[in-house]
Design a protein around this nucleic acid. Sequence first.
DNA 1: CGTCAACTTGACTTCACTCAAATAAGGTGG
DNA 2: CCACCTTATTTGAGTGAAGTCAAGTTGACG
Lengths: 284, 284
Amino acid sequence: MTGSGVTNWLGANTPETNRRASTEAATSSRADIPLRDSNISSLIKPQIFSRFWSTGLLDREDLQTLQAQEWTRRTVEARTRFQMGRGFCVLASGLAARYGVSDAEEAQSTALIVPGDICDYSVATGTEPRARLVALTKSSYLWISAEQAIALAENAPNVLAAILAQLVIDRAVSEELLFSIARRTALERTAHFLCELEYRLRRMGLAHGGRFRLPMTQAEIGRHLGLTPVHVNRTMQELRRRHFVRSNGSGVELCDQQNLQQLAAFSPHYLNLSAGPSDQAFDA
Amino acid sequence: MTGSGVTNWLGANTPETNRRASTEAATSSRADIPLRDSNISSLIKPQIFSRFWSTGLLDREDLQTLQAQEWTRRTVEARTRFQMGRGFCVLASGLAARYGVSDAEEAQSTALIVPGDICDYSVATGTEPRARLVALTKSSYLWISAEQAIALAENAPNVLAAILAQLVIDRAVSEELLFSIARRTALERTAHFLCELEYRLRRMGLAHGGRFRLPMTQAEIGRHLGLTPVHVNRTMQELRRRHFVRSNGSGVELCDQQNLQQLAAFSPHYLNLSAGPSDQAFDA
DNA sequence: CGTCAACTTGACTTCACTCAAATAAGGTGG
DNA sequence: CCACCTTATTTGAGTGAAGTCAAGTTGACG
């Protein structure tokens, strides 16, 4: 049944070539980012769409269709809400946080959105937008109208499949955050947060050698991790004291990823579609 | 654009009649369960499918198509894993917990599945199943094969839309749990848990007058709420001491829902598709 | 009637929060 | 370039909510 090119519920058909790359990637070592067909990957322009490609569900034609859409670039000032309306959009630059459906939940962000991430899945699920997105820094996103998105999904079902696949990853990230807040100490939690963010930024080419920009105040980090600003501060200090992390201003460097990952029990498999630790190849 | 019968990305078309019922429901008071077209609702057999209907996305024909599938009923013993494989299934009876993708996460359940809930969305998203489901009591579920599910989605796109809509609610529930664990005290958290569960069971006809069965050990509740069994115990005692809750064995009664909901800051809007507190009707 | 799992209780510990104040860092207008 | 203002970070002392450990107690079931 999964024999040749898994057909998903949407009738989309996974291209064999890309798929195999995906399976190989699963075997790569711990925090390595699965590189697939990198000669193509590097040609993806804007880089934003490389996340779609990395699902392993698109062929080149799909990618071209995606790129051919009439994307509008919109800018959002720091600390202001996204006004997405009904439409589909992908974060192009900056950093944003998603807040829950309840009003009182201003105090807790449920997800961090980095460039390449899909801002809202409401178009794919056919429901009204629920999430409230707030830009943490001046950000920009690429946007197409709901109509165009619907047409896109019809013309290129693989693209819809890729979007839904990202939704699945998004959920896994949420689950990991839930676990982090429920079970990890502040130190482990913060370490995990840094590891995850570094990984996600790195695969978008926004982190190199463990260095990246973290344009969040400690209060914002606290809102994300369920900690008070004061405790975030002390926790970061402890990480620095242990020489796991260095930082100056909004610049962060994970100088001892080995230990940091161990402390956090971080493994990036949940950030990828099919690279579970106990995952067997699902073609044959 | 949202003028007449919103078209979703899947090309499914929302039936006008059902839709209006949905909008009305949004105006009903706090913990009231939106009753819609109840003369039909009560005819739904098995009751399990009433959750699909309640999305407001199906018409009667869709419902019949859904019911006409060759559902297989499968049973799962308490404390054992679901073996769903690639397929689509809905919990028919009992109670189950979902655990995250990481191995270490046995200690934390990310969601509770009650009858009527969809066990796994992997068929809808076209990805491999990731969730691990464990039955808390002897449970049963209705199952169709992936092939049949795909065919169903093609024949009745509204059904797919309804499933994705439930996925959205599922996410909102996760977010609420995240908020609960991050921001609420053990007492508030436990109160919230009870309110949510009562609501969800009530709309499936499994709770009456605040009374329902809660066949979970305190250790399992703790695994769900991020608390130790000991603390769950003390917390439940405090709720009983305040006369908010009564319990004998696995039977629970919320005898002071008013105060319980206030303590928990519980509002069921997140459990419904479009009944947000600050929600305006989106037709007209 | 014995056994095992679940629940309960008490004493102690600790992680993270609170409150309050002191620095440091960033912008802005003069 | 500096004075000023605001926002962010840092530090300290004290508190409290929830965890830990360890020992009962209850209850279901064979």
